[in-house]
């Protein structure tokens, strides 16, 4: 490992504390404020799309970008197709992992 200028002791724990604040204030915001802070009904309805949007936004760059470049023909996309086919056809929860990793390894090596 190269020499780092990382501080130690209290500096490091302060950094952890700040990262924790920046995590738990967003997480707790509406759960803790509860019924005193209500979002408008329209916004609440729009938020139903948040999980689909967030999941796709996390997955698609990982599948379509190879070291930062758009690459349609790649083993990860083939593995993704396998995962979607298996997950749509069968209810078994472990099968998508087995199929996805098998296709990835098959086309990678």
């Amino acid at each position: 490992m190269s020499e780092s200028v990382m501080h130690s002791g209290w500096w490091l724990w302060l950094a952890f504390f700040l990262a924790a604040l920046a995590t738990h204030i967003p997480r707790g915001s509406f759960i803790v404020a509860g019924s005193r802070a209500k979002l408008p009904a329209g916004l609440q309805r729009a938020l139903r799309y948040a999980p689909a949007a967030a999941l796709a936004a996390l997955v698609m760059p990982d599948v379509l970008l190879i070291s930062g470049e758009l690459q349609i023909a790649n083993p990860k996309l083939l593995a993704t197709i396998a995962v979607f086919v298996v997950a749509t056809r069968w209810r078994n929860a472990w099968l998508p992992f087995i199929a996805g990793m098998a296709v990835l390894w098959l086309f990678k090596f």
Binding site: A22, T23, P26, R27, S29, A50
Partner: peptide, 21 residues
């Protein structure tokens, strides 16, 4: 460090609001 962690976690405000009821 604070700003980066906040940007990475903003999605939780949306999740928190959606699940709060």
């Amino acid at each position: 460090i604070l700003a980066t962690a906040l940007a990475l976690n903003l999605r939780f405000v949306i999740f928190s609001a959606a699940i709060a009821p």
